[in-house]
C-alpha cells in the first residue's frame, strides 16, 4: 500500500519522555474509510501516538502523513482544523453556548455557521436544535460529549481522532453514543481512530484493532480474527476479559435461551 492511498500513515514515529519510550518506532498505515480502534493498557502509549496525528504531541523522530502530506509541513492550526478531535475531557468552552462551541472551528477559519447547519450538526448527534442556546454547565455528561462530537464534525473533517471518547460516560449513554459515532463514520465517509482501553468497545465498533504495549504495536487484526484467537498473547489477554464476562453472564441463572 503506497502512502497516497492512506488517510493516515505513521512512519517510524517515536516519542520519548526521558528514558520512557512512550511511542517506540511505530509504523502503520490506515486507509480511507477505516474505523480503527487503538487498544492497550494505561501507559501503553496509545494516546501519545494518536496525538502525534494532530501534533498535540510532537514526535521526536519519524513522520506522520495525512493524505500523503507530512503533518509537520502544514501550519499546525490549519492541520488541526481539518482533523476532528474528541477526547475524554470534552473541553467545552464554558463561556460559550452550545452553538458557539460547535461553530468555533469554522469561526477560526473565518467562516460563520448558519443556524440550520448548527441544527443539522446537533441532529447528527441526536440533540434537539433548541439546545443551541444552552450553556455547557446546563448539559448532562452525555449531552456534553455529543456536543463535543458535533464540534469535531463542524469543520467537515475527513479524519476523526477520538481519545477515550466515552470513558467518562455511563454505560447506556456510552453504548448509544458509540453506535451513533459508528453510524456517522459510515454515513459521512470518515476515517476514524479511536483510542480505548475497553476491548469490548473496540471489537464492537471497529473494522480493525491495533493493540499497543510499551510503545509498540503488538497486534493488528480484525475483530473477527481476534475473536478467533489471533494477535498473540497480549491481545488475547485483552480479549479474554469481555469473553469471560460474557461467559459468566450467560451462565447466570435466568439468562440465555430458556
Amino acid at each position: 500500500m503506497s502512502a497516497g492511498d492512506s488517510a493516515l500513515q505513521f512512519d517510524s514515529v517515536a516519542r520519548h519522555y526521558g528514558d520512557l519510550r512512550a511511542v517506540d518506532e511505530v509504523s502503520i498505515a490506515i486507509p480511507h474509510g477505516q474505523f480503527v480502534a487503538l487498544v492497550g493498557a494505561s501507559g501503553s502509549g496509545k494516546s501519545t501516538l494518536l496525538k502525534t496525528a494532530n501534533r498535540l504531541t510532537i514526535p521526536d523522530t519519524g513522520r506522520v502523513l495525512i493524505d500523503g502530506e507530512d503533518a509537520a509541513s502544514l501550519p499546525v492550526s490549519a492541520l488541526r482544523r481539518r482533523i476532528g478531535y474528541v477526547f475524554q475531557g470534552i473541553g467545552l468552552f464554558p463561556h460559550m453556548n452550545v452553538a458557539e462551541n460547535i461553530a468555533i472551528g469554522p469561526r477560526l477559519a473565518g467562516e460563520r455557521l448558519s443556524e440550520a447547519r448548527i441544527a443539522e450538526l446537533l441532529g447528527l448527534v441526536e440533540l434537539d436544535p433548541t439546545m443551541a442556546a444552552r450553556m455547557p454547565d446546563a448539559l448532562s455528561g452525555g449531552q456534553r460529549q455529543r456536543v463535543g462530537v458535533a464540534r469535531a464534525l463542524a469543520g467537515e473533517p475527513r479524519l476523526l481522532l477520538m481519545d477515550e471518547p466515552f470513558g467518562a460516560l455511563d454505560p447506556i449513554t456510552r453504548d448509544a453514543l458509540g453506535d451513533r459515532v459508528r453510524a456517522l463514520h459510515d454515513d459521512l465517509g470518515l476515517t476514524t481512530i479511536m483510542v480505548t482501553h475497553d476491548m469490548a468497545e473496540a471489537l464492537l465498533l471497529a473494522d480493525r484493532v491495533l493493540v499497543m504495549d510499551q510503545g509498540r504495536i503488538v497486534a493488528d487484526e480484525t475483530p473477527l480474527a481476534l475473536l478467533e484467537g489471533a494477535g498473540g498473547e497480549i491481545a488475547q489477554g485483552l480479549v479474554a476479559v469481555p469473553r469471560e464476562q460474557a461467559r459468566r453472564l450467560a451462565a447466570l441463572p435466568g439468562s440465555g435461551p430458556a
Binding site: 494532530n54 498535540l56 499546525v76 492550526s77 490549519a78 492541520l79 488541526r80 482544523r81 478531535y85 477526547f87 475531557g89 470534552i90 473541553g91 467545552l92 468552552f93 468555533i104 472551528g105 477560526l108 477559519a109 464540534r151
Partner: peptide, 8 residues
C-alpha cells in the same frame, strides 16, 4: 487542550 485541538 480543546482550544489547541480545534486549531486555535
Amino acid at each position: 487542550e480543546a482550544a489547541d485541538g480545534v486549531g486555535m
